[in-house]
């Protein structure tokens, strides 16, 4: 399992040309093993650049990234090995499916790790189980399935490597509400059952509020906020100023407070909202 330490990380795109642009600057961060982290930030805030540093897809312009106490950019070997420890699922991962069958596509990662045939099969079954893909689909072509199923197979392809850290870039973008919920639940289950660290980049504040233990907000290539959902969502004004939204319940609570209704405590989930309203009306929460 893996702890991630990021020290003074910066990345500059097209250094030394007129198009030079600092994407992230001076990031210091420690993510202990097993944490469920929500990564928020508007488009261009540097979060996608940041996550690509965590598995050495991008090399830092300056600073270090340590996974399990080892600098991942030491040499070619560590850069290659870290990709098995830190699994990264890109945005719209279904566009990267290429094999003839679902089974073969999920097996691509484990095969690259050089595992035996039995081990590969075991991992494919396990990964498919985590994302709720039925084994009857194993021989189907991944290109013929529905969008939601493709997405789950693509995620299974990364999970099959059994990464100690699972990073997902907007895993629910473009899915219907049921598809979103299923995928978020699958990811949660993976985290609970394996004890892996999970980092989810999301624009969905409600998901972030409901699932994450810790929320990190990116703005202009740096970290603007870092704390528990309670801490971050108790500062809704700042979030809105950065150009982000707040969870629905927080927005309702803000509106009620403006009308003079005194709600106590931080409100970022539906339960908390109900609770706060009941308490304000003098009724004890059930």
């Amino acid at each position: 399992m893996a702890e991630i330490i990021v020290e003074n990380l910066s990345h500059v795109y097209s250094a030394g040309t007129p198009f030079e642009k600092a994407a992230i600057q001076g990031i210091d961060l420690t993510i202990p093993q097993g944490q469920f982290v929500g990564l928020l930030g508007h488009t261009g805030s540097g979060k996608s650049t940041f996550i690509q540093h965590l598995n050495a897809l991008l090399t830092p312009s300056s600073g270090r990234v340590l996974v399990d106490g080892e600098d991942i950019n030491q040499d070619k070997k560590t850069r290659y090995r870290v990709k098995q420890k830190v699994g990264l699922v890109f945005q719209y991962p279904e566009y990267q499916l290429f094999e003839e069958t679902v089974f073969a596509d999920i097996a691509f990662g484990p095969k690259n790790m050089g595992l035996s045939a039995e081990e590969i099969e075991e991992r494919v079954r396990e990964a498919a189980g985590f994302v709720g893909v039925d084994e009857s689909l194993f021989q189907a072509s991944p290109l013929e399935l529905s969008g939601g199923q493709k997405r789950r197979i693509a995620i299974a392809g990364v999970i099959a490597m059994r990464p100690g850290v699972l990073i997902l870039d907007e895993p629910t973008a473009g899915l219907d509400p049921r598809g979103c919920r299923q995928i978020m639940d699958n990811i949660c289950r993976y985290q609970k059952e394996t004890g892996a660290t999970v980092i989810v980049v999301s624009h969905n504040m409600d998901d972030a509020a409901r699932l994450a233990e810790r929320i990190i907000v990116f703005d202009h290539g740096g970290i603007a906020m870092d704390g528990t959902p309670e801490e971050v969502f108790s500062r809704p004004r700042e979030l809105i100023d950065i150009g982000l939204a707040v969870p629905q319940s927080t927005a309702i609570a803000m509106a009620l407070r403006e009308k003079g209704i005194d709600l106590k405590g931080a409100v970022y989930t539906h339960e908390q909202l109900l609770d706060a309203i009941l308490r304000a009306k003098g009724v004890d929460a059930c």
């Binding site: 990709k83 699922v89 890109f90 490597m161």
Partner: peptide, 13 residues
């Protein structure tokens, strides 16, 4: 570029 990154993340060489 994007597809290459994604397959690299799955250990493609």
């Amino acid at each position: 570029d994007k597809i290459m990154s994604a397959q690299k993340a799955r250990g493609a060489d």
